[in-house]
Amino acid sequence: MLKTDCVREAVEEYGDMLYRICLVMLKNTADAEDAVQDTFIRYMQKAPAFSSDEHEKAWLIKVAANICKDMLRQRNRTAELDEAALNTLTAADEDSHILEALTQIPEKFRIVLTLHYIEGYKVNEIAEMIGKTSSAVKMRLAKGRKLLEEKYRKEYMQ
């Protein structure tokens, strides 16, 4: 088990990133915080030896994504964005509804769009993280962009 100091360092380094991913996935601030907490608990209890910071980051993202998937499975997967999450997203950028639109597309597209456009991961890196082929990730990116654009134009553009 890792020491608390190591966990603190990891929370400071990766907490915001994991929270963003979980919030987009779960659309609920309380659940997102729980998911981040569970991620760091697992990190404390089960983290392997990391070969690099990138390896550590990728491990955390993978665990967080799996936790989010489990939570989505256990509750209504079509839950709407709750008010607190909506306030968080719109406070991020009052003029842009793109984040809101992102939360409204299916989960499997959300995660690849988040990892690619927000966290800057490449296709092959995302493929490794989520256990899919690079082709599958490319298709999800393409389709996800299209769905995001459609959602955005339909909901937020006059």
Binding site: V24, T88, Y117, G120
Partner: peptide
């Protein structure tokens, strides 16, 4: 819609 705005918006969430 500019997809690059996704990153800019998301980075403000902490």
């Amino acid at each position: 819609m500019n997809i690059d705005d996704l990153k800019k918006s998301a980075e403000k969430i902490t």
